[in-house]
Simulated scan of single mutants.
Amino acid sequence: MTTAFELQRDQFRKLVLTDADGNHHYDVSPVRAFPIQAPTQGISLVLENGQEVAWIDDLADLKEEIRQLIEGELEGREFMPEILRIVSVTSFATPCTWQVETDRGNTQFVLKGDEDIRRIGKDSLLISDNHGIHFLIRDMFGIDKHSRKILDRFL
C-alpha cells in the first residue's frame, strides 16, 4: 500500500503530515465526510484553518501505522455511543429518562423532546440528550423487540 503522504506525531502529540513534495503540515486533524453511513471512507486531513491537505478514500487503503494514527485521533475527538438496547424509559411523554445499553457501557440520559430523535438514512437514528451528546441507533429495524416497541412510541 502506497500513500502520497507520511503521518507521525510530534513532541506535543499533534499529527504532522509530510506530503509527496516533502512539505510538512503541522497539527492536522482527520474529519469524516460521512461519519455514520461510511465511517471508514471519505476522510479529509485538514489544518486548523480548515484547509484540506490530504484526502483518504478508504482507511483500509492506508499503511497500518498511518491508519492507526488516524483512527486514534478520530476516537479521541468523536464520542457517539451506539445504542444496542433500550432497557427502559420513565415516560412516553418528554422530557423523560432513558436507560440504555451502548457499545461503551450502560448509561442513562434525558430526552428533552421528540424532535431530539432524528432519522439518518432509512435505518438509522440519531438521538441527542439534554447535554448535547449524540447516541446512534445504527439499525432501528434490527434492534431487539422490546427496544423497537419503545422506539415506536416516540417515532
Rank of each mutant, 00 (worst) to 15 (best):
L84N: 13
R9S: 08
E65T: 12
D61L: 07
W55F: 14
I127E: 00
F12H: 13
A60D: 12
G132P: 00
L84Y: 03
D57G: 13
D123F: 02
D152L: 15
A60T: 12
S147W: 07
I120M: 05
L155A: 13
F34E: 01
C96P: 05
R9H: 07
Q8I: 02
T107H: 01
L155P: 04
D139W: 00
T40P: 00
R104N: 07
N130P: 00
Y26N: 09
K122R: 12
G113E: 11
L17M: 14
D19Y: 14
I117G: 06
T18R: 13
R32H: 05
F92S: 05
D114G: 09
V87L: 07
L69K: 06
R138F: 02
F79D: 02
A33V: 11
R119E: 10
V31N: 03
G50R: 11
R119C: 07
E115Q: 10
T18V: 15
R138L: 05
V28N: 00
R13C: 07
K63I: 04
A54L: 03
E115I: 13
V100I: 11
D27P: 00
N130G: 01
S128K: 02
D139I: 04
T97P: 00
F34G: 02
E82H: 14
A60Y: 03
P39N: 08
E78T: 14
I120N: 08
W55I: 11
Q37S: 06
F34R: 07
K149P: 08
S91K: 11
